[in-house]
């Protein structure tokens, strides 16, 4: 049962650690040139396909009186549109809405991969994928700002907030530059990555460790077998609580990433206030 739940884990992989997150090449027989074609890349691509198929499916055959399928799609879409895009971006939210909807559903689906069979691995606990998403957001908010204000004007707005006296400007400019162009994308990526990495590690400790304790047949560290097995059972039961927590964390992180993306775009194109 354990190898089925977490395919990468075996007896030799205890305790679970950073190397439990290593990717496996899909076609090892093709040689190192094709190692980039690994299981985590495949699951990210499958996630993207699922998102595309889902939105195409709910957008097809729209009727004036929505059926169940259309109601579901419109409900999710409205949730994102009203509570994220329109609230934060104001009247020109429409241009950015497709990106925000795609971003949210892609992150959500990939996070849920961590809790469901087949993959049992959240894609964004590999930091490269989180960096990739943050890079997309970075390009989006800077491009939006540069298109609206021109490069020079945009850089001035982003590094020198209105109301700072000139005497302090030389101290504030590097600070704002780092905060807006370096801290933003990195914190965005690291927040997503760290939450999922830590969550998945805890799940592995509970499930793999619980499985090991449950199948113990001889005393270890002076503890009798029944006690070890009971501890394993308790660990399994509690792993369900951790799974529930991870469902929440996955949804929350998808939401936060999307909200902050909208927030960054909004601050890049904001009028003076």
């Amino acid at each position: 049962m354990i190898p089925l739940l977490i395919p990468m884990e075996g007896e030799s992989h205890w305790p679970p650690g950073v190397d439990s997150f290593d990717s496996r090449p899909l076609f090892p027989e093709l040689g190192p040139d094709y190692y980039w074609l690994n299981n985590h890349l495949a699951q990210a691509v499958i996630g993207a396909i699922l998102v595309i198929v889902f939105w195409l499916w709910v957008a097809r055959n729209q009727k004036v009186v929505p059926g169940k399928k259309q109601f579901l799609g419109e409900y999710l879409y409205n949730l994102l549109r009203n509570s994220i895009a329109r609230d934060i971006l104001g009247h020109d939210y429409r241009k950015y809405l497709p990106y925000l909807v795609g971003l949210f559903s892609f992150i959500l689906v990939n996070n849920l991969f961590g809790e469901f069979f087949l993959f049992m691995f959240p894609t964004f606990s590999k930091i490269g994928y989180a960096y990739g998403l943050a890079l997309c957001t970075f390009i989006l908010y800077n491009a939006a700002g540069i298109r609206k204000y021109g490069f020079g004007n945009y850089m001035k707005r982003m590094t020198l907030p209105a109301g700072v006296p000139l005497g302090l400007a030389w101290l504030i400019i590097p600070l704002e530059f780092i905060s807006n162009f370096i801290a933003r994308p990195f914190t965005l990526a690291l927040r997503l990555f760290a939450n999922l990495f830590a969550g998945h590690l805890v799940i592995m400790v509970f499930v793999v460790g619980g499985g090991m304790l449950l199948t113990m047949t001889e005393p270890a560290n002076g503890f009798p077998v029944p006690l070890l097995n009971a501890a394993g059972a308790v660990s399994f039961i509690f792993s369900f609580a951790i799974f529930a927590l991870e469902l929440l964390v996955g949804a929350l992180q998808a939401y936060i990433f999307t909200v902050l993306t909208a927030q960054y775009v909004s601050s890049a194109i904001a009028e003076e206030h």
Partner: peptide, 20 residues
Amino acid sequence: MSGQGGADQGYRIVSILISG
């Protein structure tokens, strides 16, 4: 300015303090 209960502004403020 935003209806997010201030959480997003909070994140921005924290990132400014940390980057300082």
